[in-house]
Structure formats: C-alpha cells, structure tokens
Write a protein that binds this DNA or RNA. Structure first.
Length: 460
DNA sequence: CGGCGTTAG
DNA sequence: TATTCTAACGCCG
C-alpha cells in the first residue's frame, strides 16, 4: 500500500458567527444584543438565529408559524432572507481572509479553511486573534477562528468556542444584561484555545470526552442515534471503536472521521472551485398552485436560472429533469410527487433548447386537479463546453457546428445584457411577466451593498 | 448506471 | 393560513 506519512500542517477554520444575522445587524446596529431571526423563502422556516433567539428556544429550521408566539412576546426582529446582501458580504470576508494565506478553501457562504503552514507554531494563537480582529474591524462581522491539524478537529474546536461564548451570553441575557463579551475566550479546558494544533494527547482526550457524538462533523442524525444505541456517546468513545466496525457500519467516511479526530489528516483542503456535477433550481410556491400554465411559467424561470449557472461555469449538460410535488401537509394525505428526465441529442447550455425539453417533461408528469406546492428542474450529465470528447449528431453533420456556434453566441449576448442591465432584461416569453406565484419575502431588508437606491444615507 | 441513503450548510 | 434550497458521495443491485 502506498501510504505516505504527511507532515502535519496547521489548518484554520474561519466561521462567521450567526452570519445572516450579523449581516442584518451590520446595517441596523440597534439589533445588537437583541434576538434576531432570518427566514427561508416564503418566510417559511427559521434558517438563522442570533444567540439571543437561540436562548428563547427558537429552533433551527423551525416553521415560522410555530415560533410566532415567542417572536411576538419577546420582540424578536424577523427578516426575510436577503441573499444578495449575504453573498456580497461573504465575498468581502473571503477577500480579507485571502490576505492571511495563499491557500484558501471557501467552504460555504460563511466558512473558509485556511492553510497556515507558513505560520510558526508558537505564533498561531496570535495569528488567529489577528485574523479575527481584522475581519471585525474592516467588515464588522464577528467570526470564530479555530486552528488544528485536521478539518474535523477545526470544526470541533469551533463548536466548543461557540458553546463557551453562548454560555457566557446566556448568563447575561437571562439576567437582562446587555453588554455581551464578544472577545474570544480561552476555554475552560486544559490546553484548549483558538489553537489546538500540537495539543498534548492527554488534553485532546479530555476535550473529546466533552463532545456529544452528534456534534461531530460528518456524523448526522441517523449515525448519531445508531451509535448512541450502542453506547457510543462521545467523540472519545468514537475514536476508540474498532476500525472495521466503523468501516462496516459507516463506510469509509466514518473511518476518515475517526482518523481526523486522531489528528491524522484525511480530508484535504479543496483549493480550486470545482464545477458542479448537477444543478438544481426549484422553489416552493407562496400558495399551492393548480394551473398548468402557472407551473410552466415558474418552471421556465427555474430553467433559466439553472442554465445561467451552467453557462457561468462554462459547462453544457446532456439531460434535463423536472419534478413536481404537492403539499405533503395538506390534501388529506393525497400526496403526489413525480419526476422525469429527458435527454438532449447533443450537449447544450442553451436556455431555449433546455426550456423546450423541460416543458415536454412537465407536460408528461403534470396531473390535473392537484394543488402543487413545488416545481423544479435539474441539469445532469454536465461537462465542460470545450471538453475533448463531444457527442455529435450523426445526421446533422457540418450544419450542427454552425447551429451550436449560433446558440453559444446568442447565449453569450443574453448573459452579457442581463449582467449589465439587470436580471431577466432578456428572457423567454415562457417565463412570463406577472409572476404572481413568486416567493413572498415581505420582511426583507434593503440591498445595502448591491443596489444604488438602497445605499445608507449618513447625516453629518 | 440509476436509485437510495446520508450528510452538510 | 403557515414546514427552505442545494450539492456531494458511497453503496447496492
């Protein structure tokens, strides 16, 4: 077996605290120290909470209607999600982080892993503090920085830091005190801090014993409850499980997690942004919809979105899927969900071509008389536009090249105009104009950083 | 290779 | 009244 021992390098995880809430607070400082939540599309579920909102018992993913009472009783500030704002601030955070390393993995909208092999071991803690204060000073976004040998240990460290912060804030919140301590605190565990790189074995065990099995990165609900049923309650118990048992029950990913918890790095940083292998675009309707026309129109908009994404990453796709779903919480148990995948003859990223196919698919799976909650499309069989091997059409010959060339020029202009002059300035008529079915976001804050009309005005 | 199960944010 | 959206990966037959 070709097993190369890799020298351990420090990795940092930067995680923006309650990111969406922090973005809202940035433009509305009165929200600091107050409970704030951000909702999903159609203001359906809670998808982000300030710590204060967590203290009130509002759960992640909870339907808004279920916590409306708490919201009213405690004056919780509520926002529809403002993705344009969050994406813009995320970009800014990432570009600040790039100053601290040349190897950055943007892991999600609010998280990044940084390769810190260029930093002296004794200087790591200071480096973490510096990253934190620069992001806070320049962007006003509070972050957690955690350094360790592996991604999984970074995650674990980050979790503990946040738990400690929450504990302190909760104490103040319940006593009605306002000023929270936002400085990073050294944890009340021997050897534990923002930096656990090179931590002593004995200390690591002690920390692992504090971690509930379900909090480990890579162990979700199902595995957690299975493991608990076997008496495996903490991360410490987990690393002491027999490797073959872990492999059998949790596959190779489980073994990786086990190794990562032992500071043996198995999950590398992904420095380049990989092209997506599938692209989905779908949304729930604000209200259930019965009319095929409405479904077609909504679907056309999602197809347009998906195709834009496809072209942005300079790809083409071979198959187009469409799915529909009625509301599983209604219709007295009559639930209908179906999907259909159709193939293009030749790989394409043309909105117009793909729209035609999607419409055909929807016609086939649409059942009249039902109230639909959701429709969407997915693109598969994705490859690079200029990949070496292309599937051609046997009967089209030379003419095909010309047609494809025309398509790609058309889409090029299409994208150019829409990027310059705004979303859907060029569109297919199938996408419609009235859009009554569109997502409700009544509580959205302004696009402070991406729309001239929404710029904050400051009086001097 | 398609379908299913699991996880993640 | 009301329950997000997207993506990846491993395994199995």
């Amino acid at each position: 077996m070709d097993f190369k021992y890799k020298k351990q390098r420090p990795i940092a995880l930067v995680d923006c605290n309650n990111f969406y809430v922090s973005c809202e607070r940035l433009f509305n400082p009165a929200l600091r120290f107050k409970p704030v939540v951000v909702l999903s599309n159609n203001d359906g579920c809670v998808i982000a909470r300030s710590n204060e909102a967590k203290f009130l018992g509002i759960k992640m993913g909870e339907p808004y209607f279920k916590c409306k009472k708490i919201v009213q009783d405690h004056g919780v500030a509520v926002f529809s999600s403002n993705y344009a704002l969050y994406a813009d601030l995320s970009k800014r955070v990432m570009s600040v982080l790039e100053r601290f390393t040349s190897n950055l993995e943007v892991y999600s909208i609010d998280e990044a892993f940084l390769d810190l092999s260029h930093v002296e071991k004794d200087f790591l803690e200071d480096y973490a503090m510096e990253i934190r204060s620069v992001v806070l000073r320049e962007l006003g976004i509070p972050i957690t920085v955690s350094i360790a040998e592996t991604k999984t240990l970074c995650k674990l460290n980050s979790y503990l830091q946040k738990e400690v912060l929450k504990k302190e804030q909760s104490f103040n919140f319940k006593k009605g005190l306002k000023g929270h301590n936002i400085k990073p605190k050294v944890l009340n565990v021997p050897g534990m801090s923002m930096n656990v790189f090179g931590i002593k074995e004995a200390y690591r065990d002690e920390i692992l014993k504090l971690i509930d099995i379900g909090e480990i990165w890579g162990i979700g609900k199902k595995y957690a409850s299975f493991l608990k049923s076997k008496g495996v309650m903490t991360a410490y118990d987990f690393i002491n499980l027999d490797m073959e048992f872990v492999r059998k029950k949790m596959k190779v990913c489980g073994v990786r997690t086990q190794n990562e918890l032992k500071a043996l790095s198995c999950i590398d940083l992904e420095l380049s942004i990989r092209n997506k292998k599938s692209i989905i675009s779908s949304k729930s309707f604000a209200k259930d919809e019965v009319d095929l026309k409405v479904l077609q129109e909504a679907l056309s908009n999602y197809v347009a979105r998906a195709c834009e994404k496809l072209r942005d990453q300079k790809s083409v796709c071979l198959s187009v899927g469409v799915f529909v779903r009625t509301n599983p919480f209604k219709n007295g148990g009559e639930y209908y969900s179906n999907s259909l995948v159709l193939n293009l003859d030749v790989a394409s990223n043309s909105t117009l071509k793909i729209l035609k196919l999607a419409k055909k698919a929807l016609d086939k799976i649409f059942r009249p008389g039902l109230a639909y909650k959701k429709v969407g499309c997915f693109l598969m069989g994705i490859s690079d536009v200029d990949s070496e091997c292309k599937q051609m059409d046997l009967f089209e010959g030379e003419g095909l090249i010309e047609k494809q060339d025309f398509d790609s020029k058309l889409m090029g202009v299409w994208d150019l105009i829409n990027k310059k002059h705004g979303k859907d300035k060029i569109l297919s008529l199938a996408m419609g104009f009235n859009k009554k079915w569109q997502t409700q976001r009544g509580l959205k804050s302004n696009s402070f950083t991406t729309c001239w009309d929404n710029l904050l005005k400051v009086k001097i």
